[in-house]
Amino acid sequence: MRGRDILIAVLLGLALWQGAVMLTNAPHFILPSPWRIAQAAYRSRAIIAENAVVTTVEVLLGLVLGTLLGAATAIHLALSKTAERLMLPLLVFTQAVPVFALAPLLTLWFGYGMGSKIVMTVIIIYFPVASAFHDGLTRIDRGYHDLSVTMGAGKYHFMRHVRIPSALPSLGTGLRLSAVYAPIGAVIGEWVGASKGLGYLMLLANGRAKIDLMFASLIVLACLTVVLHIAVGRLADWMSNYAHGSGRS
């Protein structure tokens, strides 16, 4: 997808939106026009920026911690057959619990600050990362395994020098999913109980019938997600190129 295509798509979407508002004559407290939202965003730029920083920090910390935790779990499961047998069904079972339903509990345990939102983000991205990476670690070419056995490889050295590098594309796939899920986790955490963040600002604006501000916050959140998605996508591409021995590494 080229930059020009994205720009055209965005402009087309805004034009359709503006057209729909003009045609339906919808009141601004139901569906504000893009122009009105832009004005609200400019007026409230300081408060939006302040809250966007909070959400960004929550998302990034959640992403880093969730990835480290998920990757460590995947490596542990791939190293130990017993752990794999016992923990994998448990991991799958935990996914049956709607993570969003845990938000009030997390707020109770970790408070109204960033902690509960980071934990929520970690929980949301933990499984996709662990699952995708574990899949990559266990689907290794049998030839590599055979060669390593004949060379007298230790299982930790084999993990470090062969299994982890060859599973980087799978980890990249998990990270791409995480980049989409991570902002959802943080915002839901903010909806349930917070005093800062874009989710909190959206609720606040909604309660005061400032729908244009709510839309402005939503658009900033969407932009943040897109930027994160692109950045993580680049990282995933690098990981894949590295594992395949192509491109710059």
Binding site: G143, P165, S166, A243, H244, G245, S249
Partner: peptide, 8 residues
């Protein structure tokens, strides 16, 4: 198969 590791 040569089994060379592509990243090395």
């Amino acid at each position: 198969s040569d089994l060379l590791l592509p990243w090395l």
